[in-house]
Design a binder for these strands. Structure first.
Length: 413
RNA sequence: GCUGGAAUCGUCUAGUGGCAAUGACAAGAGACUGUAAAUCUCUCGCCUUCGGGCUUCGUAGGUUCGAGUCCUACUUCCAGCA
């Protein structure tokens, strides 16, 4: 069972530590979205330096490229990407919702690679197998988001998610037992194409060459094959469905919970209150996909979510939309051409400590790669450090003050 | 000097008798929440009561119901020959 210590509580909000095989996550925490085993535009060193505690990769994307076997051959997601800290994988369930032309059946989902047209099928079982091969510390159950927000569609998606959850729990348990009995062997590629196992504990040439790099000291962790499963709560915008889903998931033998499909919900606070009042207190909760808007982080933490992930901050960054304490600004706008202030006052990220808005404006206008790097460093640091401050404020009882001050300024307009 | 060729919205460009006029870039702005996103959308001659009105394709004339498109002259530029 995944170890989760709660250090402090305030209503539904809590401060805790998730102990993973790759280290601890002090919660609440923002998890960087590393869909294709990289946080776009950023190196793992930069992610580490901006304070990120964990990343989340996506099973669907890694199946397409580079292929699950390759990640396994590399020794797992952490080894492959050189992120020797906690990792999550999403199940691929979200892609059912976001991709066109997927064929959904009770068994699972069939889709064509958008890269070369190859046919793939993801099922609860194959998603579990793929996630075990990827080797993230925390896996998401393979779930189903509704295509529309009608009650009927939401209800159907929820029930299917529950049926799939049972299959995920069974398969995850089978793989865990197999891993334990065959430790050291390549035990996790069942259902995937045959491939000779190259995964060993022996250092590979490229690792030996890097062994003296200074960041080895920062990253040095032990790769473990212990892996954990979160159930995913669905139910869309309907509190009765959310409650039903939370009750269902709460009864399962899982290590924590993802709360999915939330960005379609207008009533996030009510919904989270409902769900997190039902979910067992002693297991961590991950709010899937939320965090582009700071208010989501405050509301999420206030109502008992422990971790967040979101592609918004880095995507915004690449598109020139950058966080400040006074709201997001579009750095490409003409008015920043002669603005020689830092992007954000009192920000200690590499971008704000060293560069001006005018310089960022110029880099974006000239389409320089560095524009996206610096912007991504800032935006990712902004959300990571905001959640870190939320943690501190819950700890010392000043959460409401911090929330009110932050949000009233950010959304003042 | 002679002989060809060319001049179109900030730039490059399409257009060879019915056009406020093509495309790209630039410019102005917006969107983005478990990433098919370093992506996408809108505006881009002037005015507008959003029906439309007005002025535009080097300059000046001409032919024609109608000219960016045809003719003449001029101006500028390019190429070749002197």
């Amino acid at each position: 069972m995944l170890k989760f210590d709660i250090e402090h509580k305030d209503g539904l909000a809590r401060v805790g530590i998730i102990h993973t095989p790759h280290g601890d996550i002090k919660t609440p925490a923002f998890v960087g979205a590393a869909t294709r085993a990289t946080v776009k535009a950023l190196t793992m060193k930069e992610m580490n330096e901006l304070g990120s505690q964990a990343i989340l990769a996506n099973t669907y994307h890694l199946i397409l490229r580079p292929g699950i076997e390759l990640i396994e051959e590399a020794g797992g997601l952490a080894e492959f990407s050189s992120w020797h800290k906690p990792t999550f994988t999403d199940s691929g369930g979200f892609q059912i919702f976001s991709l066109p032309n997927v064929k959904i059946s009770e068994n699972g989902v069939k889709f064509k690679s958008h890269i070369d047209g190859a046919n793939f099928e993801l099922t609860p079982e194959s998603s579990m197998q793929a996630q075990w091969a990827i080797g993230a510390d925390i896996h998401m159950a393979f779930d189903h988001l509704a295509k529309s927000d009608s009650y009927a569609d939401m209800e159907e998606a929820m029930h299917r998610t529950h049926r799939w959850l049972d299959r995920c729990v069974t398969e995850h348990k089978r793989l865990r037992e197999k891993a334990a009995s065959e430790s050291g062997q390549n035990a996790f590629s069942e259902g995937l194409p045959e491939r000779s196992s190259a995964r060993t504990s022996a250092p590979r040439p490229w690792r030996r060459a890097e062994a003296t790099r200074p960041e080895e000291k920062v990253f040095g962790q032990i790769l473990s094959r212990e892996q954990y499963l979160y159930a995913v709560v669905q139910g869309g915008t309907f509190n009765d469905l959310r409650a039903e889903s939370a009750r269902y998931c709460a009864g399962k033998d899982v290590d924590g919970f993802g709360i999915g499909g939330v960005f379609t919900a207008k009533n996030m606070d009510e919904m989270l209150k409902t769900v997190n009042s039902i979910l067992p207190e002693n297991k961590p909760r991950h709010l899937l996909g939320m965090g582009q808007e700071p208010i989501d982080l405050f509301v999420g933490a206030e109502y008992g979510c422990d971790t967040f992930d979101c592609v918004g901050p880095t995507r915004m960054a690449r598109n020139g939309s950058l966080y400040t304490k006074d709201g997001r600004i579009n750095i490409k706008n003409a008015k920043y051409a002669h603005d020689f202030k830092p992007l954000m006052e009192d920000c200690d990220c590499e971008c704000c400590k060293n560069y001006t808005r005018a310089y960022l404006h110029h880099l974006f206008r000239t389409d320089e790669i560095t524009a996206k790097v610096l912007a991504s460093i800032h935006n990712e640091h902004f959300v990571v450090s905001t959640v870190d401050h939320i943690r501190e404020s819950i700890m010392d009882g000043t959460f409401q003050d911090y929330k009110n001050a932050f949000l009233s300024r950010y959304y003042a307009k």
